[in-house]
Amino acid sequence: MSGAEFVPLSLSPLIIGCLAAVACALPGNFLILRRQALIGDAISHVVLPGIVVAFLFAGTISATAMMLGAAAAALLAVAMIEGIRRFGRIEPGAAMGVVFTTMFAGGVLLLELSDTSGVHLDVEHALYGNLESLIWLDATGWASLFDPTALAGLPPELFRIALVLGLIVILLALFWRPLAISTFDEGFAATLGLPVSTISLGLVIISALAAVAAFDAVGSIIVIAMFICPPAAARLMTNRLGMQVAWSVLFALASAVAGFVLAGYGPLWIGGTNSVSAAGMIATVSGVILAVTALAGPERRRVT
């Protein structure tokens, strides 16, 4: 394929898909080790009401308002889950089920009841995004990568997800040991004087940030799939935390690239004429990777 076609149409969605996948997979490692995989599920469901409420307040779809609204919704969801769990003495799975279905339902109704006709905001977008539409019209070929005017025309989602991924990488590098220790043995971490509840909350906030930035581009489905599938597959490959995180990044990238290519070009190879949903295909590929590691990963079996 020529650069003149690939660069404007496929390069930026591909990069955005990769960045989003990695940004979700990184915190996902700690979520699954903390038995909080479904917090990722809950967060991605409540991003929608957060964005709708932010829109109703701000009146426009600005990136900042969306980020703030979604992060606030994630925090509210976590606070409600924790409150129901602790004060209502309800097991966490059920508490999550109550909270995220309610918030999602509230978001859908608010969206239907408010006049959002002028903006690009609807349930379908919330569920599976629109990765394919994030094209780079100013590009003419590979040379555009060095052309400042063309670069300025890159979709803003690209910068947003890159920024969030950068933040996540820095925070992970800084707080790696406290995060690892408190994930492994929270009681011990508390006796070390580590602020375990803050760390736990910090992980949720980071996950929410990743979910919002990724959601903007790829929808909730990829967000949940990337929170869980690459880290889960990685867990079956190794018994060391650092290696697990490395594998999860590799799997996330592989899912994003293979999923995007298969969605865009796969149907053409088998004689079809239209491409299929890239977000759905990325989630599907991550599932295939998980299935393969579950059947053949070197550390797939439980020891005890």
Binding site: I32, R35, Q36, A37, L38, G40, D41, G93, L127, Y128, I221, I222, I224, A225, F227, I228, C229, A232, R235, L236, A263, P267, G272, T273, N274, S275, V276, S277, A279, G280, M281, I282, A283, T284, S286, G287, L290, A294, G297, E299, R300, R301, R302, V303
Partner: peptide, 29 residues
């Protein structure tokens, strides 16, 4: 496998749903 039930639930729901979305886009065409 050594995966816990919550991870298995999250993996299955997202992957099946994602695959469903792929099929829906096929149906559209």
């Amino acid at each position: 496998t050594r995966l816990t039930e919550d991870a298995a639930i999250g993996a299955v729901l997202s992957v099946f749903f994602g695959f469903g979305i792929v099929l829906l886009t096929v149906i559209q065409t």
